[in-house]
């Protein structure tokens, strides 16, 4: 049985609420793909929606705007986990609807 919900919550709590080089508000915004200023907004949106469209220039622009590599690392991780999380929760709701669970 592969119930990853507890481990998924632990991952989310760690990246959003644990120690980091980026503010929790910015990590949450990256996770939600909402509320960041350029150029992070464009980078995060690509990570969420078309990660294979991310270019060297996207990362370079994030660094050039004053973010450290560690901050970009955290922001990109939060964006990736956030989008996968939304997919997972959509699918679980669909499965519950199909099997009659609330």
């Amino acid at each position: 049985m592969s119930d990853i919900n507890q481990a998924r919550t632990a991952l989310t709590n760690r990246i959003l609420g644990g120690d980091g080089k980026t503010s929790p508000a910015d990590r949450r915004a990256a996770f939600n793909d909402s509320g960041l200023a350029e150029p992070l907004r464009a980078l995060v949106d690509k990570v969420a929606m078309h990660a294979n469209w991310v270019t060297d220039q996207d990362i370079a622009a994030a660094i050039a705007s004053g973010h450290s590599e560690d901050q970009v690392f955290e922001i990109v991780v939060c964006a990736a986990v956030g989008q996968a999380n939304r997919q997972y929760e959509s699918a679980f709701a669909a499965l519950d609807a199909a099997t009659g669970k609330d």
């Binding site: 990853i4 998924r8 980078l43 690509k46 990570v47 969420a48 990660a51 294979n52 991310v54 990362i59 990109v76 991780v77 964006a79 990736a80 986990v81 989008q83 996968a84 999380n85 997919q87 997972y88 699918a91």
Partner: peptide, 13 residues
């Protein structure tokens, strides 16, 4: 699906 939608995004980004 969750795992590899995270990992794939990071690999490409």
């Amino acid at each position: 699906c969750f795992s590899f939608n995270v990992i794939g995004r990071l690999a490409d980004a």
